[in-house]
Write a protein that binds this DNA or RNA. Structure first.
Lengths: 353, 353
DNA sequence: TTGTATGCGTTATCAG
DNA sequence: CTGATAACGCATACAA
């Protein structure tokens, strides 16, 4: 493989000149540039990025670490990250499948020297310590954490407001007894959605009996929840499932039992997965723009590293209600609702907090 | 950031020793190892992989270049690649969105020095030249090309045999006049599926009139094809759409016109996308294991680079017919059919061919 | 505008 | 078993 030295020799110039040509230095004559480029072409020279980043201490690569849950949502996030990174002439190095904090650190470590920063999805609050350790080595942006992490930017979605918009929508059909099928305990998305639900419920008419069911975000837990749901007496008017998979499981179980949706009971989900459009009936749900989530994380990373990485800033992306048919006929609710966007900027530079 | 020299000083040993510890050399005393590790922990030392790979000329990273079509199929491929790579302690650097051969080369170039090899999806035959240029710099494995490329391993799926199994299945319901909705010209998947269709048709009863419709793999081209289909006289018994998106578009257009599937006409697709299960009626289609495709590419890359990269080997992964309801009632065909796996091993080491 | 020389953080080849 | 030191390929301060 030809090196910069080979090119220099072939072109009859010094390595510094070749380097300047490849880095777009305007100090080089047009003619020398041509000579160098031709020599490089003859030798089929491709610059070695490892050497380059060793010298400059920059890689132009972003690390991305996601959990192993690979569905449309994650691929959209990756797509958003890749596009935004590419627009800034950066590449991404991807790693999935970290189930615990230790593995998260190990992955980050193995990226040291080949990335300028990291975008990671924090599975749970336990990871905070790991993240803190990592962010000593390079800037880190957290994807969709429900919690704050020191020295670390983050971008999340408006889970709470999304959940509230579902309850509002349900109310617009006159539904009063509204149950929730919760996601896994400890999962921050699940807990924020639960919080939004409770806020919306509490803000209105009081429910004497808590209508909360436990699920784990899987379709089968939605199926299972059907029985528990039917044990409520009287039957709730509506169920808000904290994600679409559970809503779909519930829908099929309900259908099997001959209970009509939305006539006998209304069902809503969260996430707007591709299938939500094709269920029977089509599922009313809440969508978050995964592509934008990824792209925003990249933007946030660039501004953070421009700042020197100090201060933790947080973006919260809005969420949108997607009204289909599972909550009531006639689409009497508003068609779609955007929850407001919030931008929190909490700089903590200049002193301990 | 602490370097290997800092650790050496802190531990009172040489950099060589520290390096040996981190590379698992068995030449180091248990006690020295401990001393080094403790010093490293105190200094929070993370080895710099850029320097490491500059020295060893290995990165333990695989490049992955895919088109921008991000759906479940691609994310499954990536997942397969990531898992297989991770099992061999490698990472992947991902880049999407190359629409032409030049961009493919540019992307590969920008990876020089940070990857040991490349897994790329070849969009069309025009890319062959680009691939050849790349494979001079590091081993390349092609994903799913219908064509052979010199000095370059590849892994594809059994498009032809999959198409044949669809036609066989259609025949098992007594369908004789079987049309095809083709994919885009130049797309190798589309052309292989067309070939399989023609082989299967030709092998049976001759069709006097070619029942071939042009599509472009999009859902809307499936919708459009409906009119053209209805112009055939008499109406064909069945249509094989070269991918699921077109099949789904066709299905909705047919439904709208009041034409019943499968009673009036049978429809089959290819790919088994997630939605295929939820169409009305559920779509009979062909599935390829995308996860396995990715994983196989990695395996193929490792064996190729062990060989020194000489010889181009090709794997073709089997395909499976997924019988649902769009081709006929009663599931009178076989439930699922695996096409046979083929492994071609064409070593061309030892002389010009 | 171009060339020289040094350093980036590791690994590997020698001696010891 | 351990230490000194020369690569690895490139960028850049400094000189010219």
């Amino acid at each position: 493989m030809a090196t910069i030295r080979d090119v220099a020799r072939e072109a009859g110039v010094s390595t510094a000149t070749v380097s300047r040509v490849y880095n777009g230095s305007r100090l080089v004559t047009e003619t020398t540039t041509q000579i160098v480029l031709e020599a490089a072409a003859r030798l089929d020279y491709w610059p070695n990025n490892a050497a380059r980043s060793l010298s400059t201490n920059r890689t132009h690569v972003l690390g991305v670490v996601l959990p192993d849950l690979f569905d449309e949502f994650f691929s959209e996030i990756i797509r958003g990250i890749d596009h935004a990174a590419r627009a800034r002439r950066h590449q991404i190095i991807l790693s999935c499948f970290h189930d615990n904090a230790d593995e998260l650190i190990a992955t980050a470590r193995s990226m040291r020297g080949r990335i300028d920063g990291l975008i990671a999805m924090a599975p749970d609050a336990r990871s905070a310590q790991a993240i803190a350790e990592i962010s000593r080595h390079f800037p880190v942006i957290l994807l969709n954490p429900g919690f704050a992490v020191e020295n670390c930017g983050s971008v999340g979605i408006a889970n709470r407001e999304g959940a509230r918009s579902v309850v509002r929508h349900l109310r617009s059909f006159g539904h009063r007894r509204i149950a929730i099928l919760r996601g896994p305990v400890g999962n921050t998305d699940a807990e924020e959605r639960l919080r939004g639900y409770r806020e919306a419920i509490g803000a209105g008419e009081t429910q004497h009996q808590p209508l909360e069911l436990q699920g784990d975000f899987s379709k089968s837990s939605g199926v299972l929840a059907c029985d528990a749901l039917l044990r409520f007496d009287p039957l709730p008017d509506a169920v808000f499932a904290a994600n679409d998979y559970m809503a779909i499981g519930l829908l099929t179980a309900l259908l099997e039992k001959g209970i009509r949706v939305p006539e006998d009971i209304a069902v809503a989900g969260f996430d707007d997965i591709a299938l939500a459009r094709y269920t029977n009936p089509p599922l009313t749900t809440v969508t978050a723009d995964a592509y934008r989530l990824g792209a925003t994380a990249v933007r946030r990373w660039f501004s953070a590293s421009a700042d020197g990485g100090s201060g933790h800033q947080r973006d919260i992306l809005p969420t949108r209600l997607v009204v289909r048919e599972s909550c009531g006929a006639g689409r009497s609710g508003p068609d779609t609702t955007d929850t407001e966007t919030r931008h929190q900027h909490e700089s903590n530079a200049g002193g301990p907090s």
